[in-house]
Design a protein around this nucleic acid. Structure first.
Length: 765
DNA sequence: CGTGGTGAGTTTTTT
DNA sequence: ACTCACCACG
């Protein structure tokens, strides 16, 4: 047997760095192992050391399969394993997300499922768009049949390995759809599945669903992989869904050499099918299994750990464990109560500025965590006002932007012309005179003939497409354009091809036609995409691999999310992100904001105790991100859906043992949540009433009379402002009151515009 | 076919 | 404010 850079591995050395329970978990390889890893208990360390140990024990690296949920987690683990066993060995491991590993397998074995190797991966917006057209074709009420809702149903079915036929037979599902007023969901599901197949496309859920089909219907293929993978590791096991559970089970059926790691207290993805039961019932599923509990938290202070424990204790459904910390006691959990969402922003950012000065910490030691992305804006604005650098995660990812998706759609089409969603996207972009009517005709023609739209475009006459000659010429010209890219794709590199596509499709011309700010940024984004391809191509060439084809780039890119593409930890910036995306991270100081009923816990789960337990786990995750200081905040009112709403403090604030809370003396938290009564005594924030940032109730002015200034927006006629999108301009007039305050502004580039100040994003110059 | 205007809905989390 | 669907007109 080959030796795998053994010089890196000296068992005695690294075992010394583990505590007793970690060591046991690493060394046990005889059967199924469940490692319950409390927050901050060194989970990743156990996983990486275990992989190193396996290699040292003679397991060949390329037979070790390690599955994670995010690309980031996979990358991180890979680099930490590399530190121990060397880059070369680490790169041989099968390590990646469920989706990326399974898509690799599926591409290899595509033929068994009637797919080509070059199948497309539909992202959520492709799926929704396809559903929208199916709903239209079925002539169903689009108010009832919302694509997002239907996709959720289908997704849930696939994650539970329910086929369209089984869906029909499932009493519960059918009844639920009936009462929800969407009885034809199963028909839509069936049509959706067949259209995906026709388009040679798989959605995210198909990557799991089809992997299971592959293993279920082709025992020889299953045997191949089962024999091939000698040891399987799964990270974040509490987040696996039924499909993943079944696939893993099949892979390890013979040898039972596998180890799953997770924390039931951190299960926060049930909304997309994660089944906490997978981890809760592991012992029953594998009677020969052993459980290891990692209970020492190395990350946080005693206070933070105890406070988090006191909260999670309120959950019924959990594996008992006692997470403890040997670190210092540390500060109590801070509480901030604000009058408004705006003031919450001011206070939190103020506190960050203060703490930074006092403790001389860099901004990168601070994180603001919120329940919903919509909450980020106020903190962003406040940080900007005070000149505090920050970095926002989430929101629209690079690859979801229109201009990028358009270009990628060309790539997709070249690789797989059956890709209906890509085709619909670019067939008339840039405008080439092929409108909706023609597209619908071509589509229904394709459907009646049982072929894809691409076939119809290439051969309109064969399928008797009913359009006039001019239109037919345009269709054929488009098909030939794509065909020319396809021909070129076998001869030139992915980068050269992408350049060719951008120029010859007319995208380049389209984006250069206008000199507006939007177009400028679109051009920059496109350039960034091309740079990315260039880097990807040259990386591949350096590693001496086959010339990089477009499909290689695409298959990588379609499983990437914004979390991955973002620039590396920028030296010194405050982090703003949702609690969900903070999982697995840690910060010295953490602010968890918006702790109000209907927000955290979310209003979506008010009637479901299970959902409330998940929200509680979510807050548990948030609190346990903190190493030294954790500060919770809530506001008494908040702008939501266009109007100011009164908010009650989150029930969770009352569930944390008060001995760990630093309760402001002027504002003792009462033992029960109470509705906010109208006049509230000010608590330590009376100065804010005079602050220009404080949003006043609408000022009374005479109706429709133009007024010279809006003190609440600090804006008067004649002011120069800079708008985020429109650039600089001058205020000519002001009008309206309260929420409907409007300003007429003459912008340098665009001319006159009305701005509704409640929404307008601008700053005074 | 393409454009530009109107009106409705929007905000939970994401591989 | 934004985005999307829909409609009327050139």
């Amino acid at each position: 047997m080959k030796t795998y850079e053994k010089r890196y591995i000296v068992v005695e050395d690294y075992l010394k760095e583990l505590n007793e329970s970690q060591k046991e978990a690493v060394l046990y390889t005889d059967g199924p192992a469940l490692v319950i890893a409390g927050a901050g208990s060194g989970k990743t360390r156990v996983l990486t050391y275990k992989i190193a140990y396996l290699i040292q024990q003679g397991y060949r690296p390329y037979t070790i399969l390690a599955l994670t949920f995010t690309n980031k987690a996979a990358r991180e683990m890979k680099s930490r394993v590399a530190e121990m066993v060397g880059q070369e060995t680490a790169s041989r491991l099968w390590m990646g997300t469920f989706h990326s590993v399974f898509s690799r397998i599926l591409r290899k074995e595509a033929a068994f499922l009637g797919y080509t190797k070059d199948f497309t991966i539909y992202d959520t917006s492709d799926s929704k768009s396809l559903l929208r057209s199916i709903i239209k074709e079925f002539a169903l009420d689009e108010k009832k049949y919302k694509p997002g809702l239907i996709l959720g149903r289908i997704s849930h079915a696939k994650n539970s390995l329910i086929s369209p036929e089984e869906y029909d037979r499932d009493r519960l599902l059918v009844e639920a759809d009936h009462t929800a007023g969407i009885p034809r969901t199963s028909d839509i599901y069936r049509a959706y599945a067949s259209r995906c197949k026709m388009a040679q496309a798989m959605d995210f859920d198909d990557l799991l669903y089809n992997t299971n089909i592959l293993f279920r219907d082709h025992p020889d293929v299953l045997k191949k992989y089962r024999d091939f993978f000698s040891y399987v590791l799964v990270d974040e096991y509490q987040d696996t869904n039924f499909a993943q559970h079944v696939i893993i089970k099949k892979l390890v059926e013979k040898h039972h050499h596998f180890c799953v790691v997770g924390d039931d207290a951190q299960s926060i993805y049930s909304f997309r099918g994660a089944e906490i039961e997978n981890i809760l019932s592991f012992e029953k599923d594998y009677t020969d299994s052993r459980i290891f509990k990692l209970e020492q938290n190395y990350r946080s202070t005693k206070t933070i750990v105890k406070a988090a424990n006191s909260l999670i204790d309120k959950n019924r459904n959990q594996i008992r464990k006692e997470v403890y910390s040997e670190n210092t006691t540390g500060n109590k959990i801070g509480l901030i109560r604000a009058y408004s969402d705006l003031e919450e922003g001011i206070q939190v950012i103020g506190k960050i500025a203060e703490l930074r000065m006092r403790t001389l910490s860099p901004y990168s030691d601070f994180a603001i965590l919120y329940r919903t992305n919509a909450q980020s804006r106020i903190f962003e604005e406040e940080a900007r006002k005070r000149g505090i650098p920050y970095r926002i995660y989430g929101g629209l990812s690079f690859y979801q932007r229109k201009e990028i998706k358009d270009v990628i759609s060309y790539f997709r089409l070249v690789v797989n012309p059956m890709d209906e969603e890509a085709l619909k996207r670019v067939i008339n972009y840039p405008l080439r005179g092929i409108g909706d009517t023609t597209v619908s005709k071509a589509l229904s023609c394709a459907l009646t003939n049982g072929v894809s739209m691409w076939n119809v475009l290439c051969d309109p006459d064969t399928y008797a497409l009913d359009v006039n000659n001019g239109t037919k010429r345009k269709l054929i010209a488009f098909a030939q354009l794509i065909q020319s890219f396809m021909n070129a794709s076998s001869e030139i590199s992915a980068y050269d091809l992408s350049i060719k596509i951008v120029f010859e499709s007319g995208i380049q011309k389209e984006l250069s036609s206008e000199m507006t700010i939007e177009h400028q940024s679109k051009r920059e984004n496109l350039q960034e995409l091309l740079n990315g391809i260039s880097m990807f191509t040259s990386d591949r060439e350096e590693q001496g691999e086959d010339p990089c084809r477009l499909i290689d780039f695409l298959s990588e890119v379609s499983l990437l999310t914004d979390q991955d593409s973002g620039d590396e930890e920028d030296a010194s910036k405050v982090t703003l992100m949702t609690v969900h995306s903070a999982k697995g991270l840690e910060f010295k100081n953490v602010f968890v904001v918006g702790l109000e009923e209907d927000l955290f816990p979310s209003s979506m789960c008010m009637n479901s105790p299970k959902a409330i337990e998940e929200e509680r786990r979510l807050l548990y995750v948030a609190i346990t991100r903190a190493k030294e200081n954790c500060i919770l905040s809530c506001s008494k009112s908040r702008f939501r859906n266009g109007s100011m709403e009164l908010c009650r403090p989150s029930r969770f604030l009352y569930e944390i043992d008060p001995q760990f809370l630093d309760i402001p003396t002027s504002d003792k938290v009462k033992s029960q949540p109470q509705p906010v009564s109208q006049p509230q005594p000010p608590f330590g924030a009376s100065h804010l009433a005079a602050s220009p940032h404080f949003k006043k109730l609408p000022t009374v002015t005479e109706n429709n009379k133009k007024i010279a200034s809006f003190p609440q927006y600090n804006l008067s006629v004649g002011d120069q402002i800079e708008h985020e999108r429109f650039g600089t301009g001058k205020v000519i007039s002001l009008e309206g009151e309260g929420d409907s305050c409007k300003a007429k502004v003459t912008f340098v580039h665009i001319g006159e515009k009305q701005l509704l100040l409640k929404f307008a994003r601008f700053k005074k110059l």
